[in-house]
Nucleic acid binder design. Structure first.
Length: 308
DNA sequence: AATGAAGCCAACCGCTCGATG
DNA sequence: GCATCGAGCGGTTGGCTTCAT
């Protein structure tokens, strides 16, 4: 893109490839195949370094390269694999037919890096669970993927921008009790931290998990999180709370961040966060919910900022 | 309409690794 | 064991495009 200068010392072209250069390289490889990039470059009549030729071929000219936008499935795969593999772009790209490491890397930096981790996970959770049978990573790999620690800058940053406000609709909290009860293995525990409800009712207690059948606030620890030492409700109730005993988003957020188990992996890995709430069979990441609640608190605060 | 900021992405750079002599 | 070379990988750059003011 505009880098069309010519290397003074080596007399090799650098920068954007012209259509003629592309044509030469493709024609040469079609006829002779790939054998030595430096020699190939000369033989093809290209004033390019072998390295540049290889990059051009691998990232753009290869016939099996898939161009265009990433699908939802590809996005979710990237998110899941990045949690497991980190910045090993080539390894991630290997799981995405037709995608290059460069493309995956660029996509990550431009579309996913700025999205808080808890939201990325929330967005990808549904597919991780429902398509567990064709998952490309093992339970062992997932288990090795630790959640971020407390100095993770992505977590520390309440970066709720417009993109996130749009994305929040993808969070998979059921809106109606009937929806959650449809879930297999449902324990009827229902999180209702939906910002719309919070804004309309200003009922901060909506941040607490409730039983969708009885309407009673639930102790998550007793019903589902058998391995967890404390529940959200425990934390909320044992902390000093203002506003007549109701937990404000600020209170909840502060508690979650200060909680010693915040961001810690407790118990075996789960393929999902929200949906694990409803499953008594699946292993869980209990404190993943702190991420979600932190996000929801931030989003709620953002809403209030826009109102006042 | 003009302009500056932010986003996007192709390409480069430097490093590591494995093969070979 | 050492040097050299090619290939591959991840981080970074910077020009073009789009968006916001």
């Amino acid at each position: 893109m505009g880098k069309t200068w010519r290397c003074q010392k080596t007399h090799l072209n650098k920068g954007v490839w012209s259509p003629e250069e592309d044509q030469k390289l493709v024609a040469y490889i079609k006829r002779y195949g790939i054998w030595n990039w430096s020699e190939m470059s000369k033989a093809a009549g290209l004033a390019r370094s072998g390295k540049s030729c290889r990059l051009r071929w691998m990232n753009y000219l290869r016939p099996d390269i898939k161009h265009g936008n990433f699908s939802k499935e590809e996005r979710e795969t990237i998110i899941a694999l990045h949690e497991t593999l980190g910045n090993r772009w080539s390894a991630i790209a290997a799981k995405l037919p037709g995608r290059t490491d460069n493309e995956v890397k660029n996509y990550w930096h431009t579309n996913l890096k700025k999205v808080p981790k808890q939201l990325r996970r929330a967005n990808s959770s549904a597919t991780c669970t429902t398509s567990a049978s064709n998952s490309t990573f093992s339970a062992t790999e997932l288990e090795a993927a630790k959640p971020p620690n407390s100095n993770d800058d992505e977590l520390a940053s309440p970066d709720i921008d417009n993109n996130l406000s749009e994305s929040i609709t993808e969070i998979s909290f059921p809106h109606e009790p009937s929806e959650s009860s449809k879930l297999e293995g449902s324990s009827n525990i229902h999180l209702v931290p939906l910002h719309d409800e919070l804004v309309s009712t200003q009922d901060f207690s909506l941040l607490a998990p409730v039983n969708c059948e009885t309407g009673e606030t639930q102790n998550v620890n007793q019903t589902i999180l058998n391995n967890a030492s404390e529940t959200f409700e425990d934390i909320i109730q044992t902390q000093p709370v203002e506003n007549g005993g109701l937990c404000t988003p600020e209170d909840a957020q502060a508690m979650f961040i200060d909680h010693p188990n915040y961001g810690q992996l407790i118990g075996p890995s789960s393929s999902t966060t929200s949906e694990a709430m409803y499953s008594q069979q699946e292993p869980i990441w209990p404190y993943d919910h702190f991420y979600e609640l932190e996000y929801l608190c931030n989003d709620w605060l953002n809403h209030m900022d826009t109102i006042f």
